[in-house]
Amino acid sequence: MEFFKNWVVQVVNIAILAVILEMLIPSSSLKKYAKVAIGLVIMAVILNPILGFLKTAPSIEAQVFKSDYLLKNSAFEGLSEKAKEQTKILIAKEYKNRLSQQIREKLESLYNLKGVEVEIFMVEDLDKKEFGKINSLILHVKGERNFNKEEVKKLISAFYNVPLKNITIKEE
């Protein structure tokens, strides 16, 4: 039940966001192109929780990040094998950094938790289909004690498709 509630709230929020964004687009011939892109984003968000059920499913964000990076650095194909490996490791690292940054920002804006360190264990092999799938998460919270642990766990689990039991909160 909790899962459906989260999903519906998320989809409703995105729909409102999409309508406002569509209003912002100037009325030109470009409008339909921008609309298609916004529609794709909505589709990705609706699909995301369904993918969470599957064991081998990839994380859409990770795929988007990967192809975004490879598109912008089109020289990738011309690199030697060794350089390619290095670049792949770099992409995975960058994605992980961005993810932990995002979780930190989210905790700060929603629960006013500052100075949280996020440790992420995820599939880091870029060639694997399930690249970006988070296996487990450890949050190191410093100082702060006044927060609802269960709620934080539920939020992270809903946003990032991590099973509740794999999220640990450590207070220091």
């Binding site: 589709m43 990705a44 699909l47 990839p58 795929q63 988007v64 598109l71």
Partner: peptide
């Protein structure tokens, strides 16, 4: 928007 399209296609294919 290409990265989003690719991400979506990969996800749908994996289902």
């Amino acid at each position: 928007s290409i990265p989003i399209i690719i991400g979506l296609v990969e996800a749908i294919l994996s289902i």
